[in-house]
Amino acid sequence: MDQPRPKQIFGAQVNGQGVELLIAPQETLLEVLRDRLELTGSKEGCGEGVCGACTVLVDGQPRRACLTLALEAQGLSVLTVEGLAQGGELSREQRAFIEHGAIQCGYCTPGMLMATRDLLSREPFPDEAAIRRQISGHVCRCTGYAKIVEAVAALGQAAPGEEQP
């Protein structure tokens, strides 16, 4: 308040693009994404790590952007829902969610998609229990999760050896 508060340079690869910004140290990754980079796809549903709507991948690891200081992602790669589609083409997770009716109000969708990307990157053929476990840190009030589980399961049903973009 009295003294000017020092700001710090934040640099990261966000959805494949280098960004550099001057930020306050207490800014969360979610604030930087939403307010500074105008990447509002990641949502704040609770701000305390429960609902999962803000989940992004930092160097491939899922993180609650609301409980992650931006500076903790310094120099790392950040993937948000906006970065899933490549060259305008929807990713396979996005397509599966759309086709299986896994999206209703859409507020939890960005976090669910990131959780799906993370799961499939580690476990390409998850069973239903593994899917439910993975998304159990993501609250959806609309779907009862059934169609989300179906969408993720469909993605994991490609035979081994088949191309996994």
Binding site: G52, Q61, R63, R64, D118, Q134, G137
Partner: peptide
Amino acid sequence: IGAPTLQQRV
């Protein structure tokens, strides 16, 4: 503890 994408990994 918590949930897989919540804090299991960080």
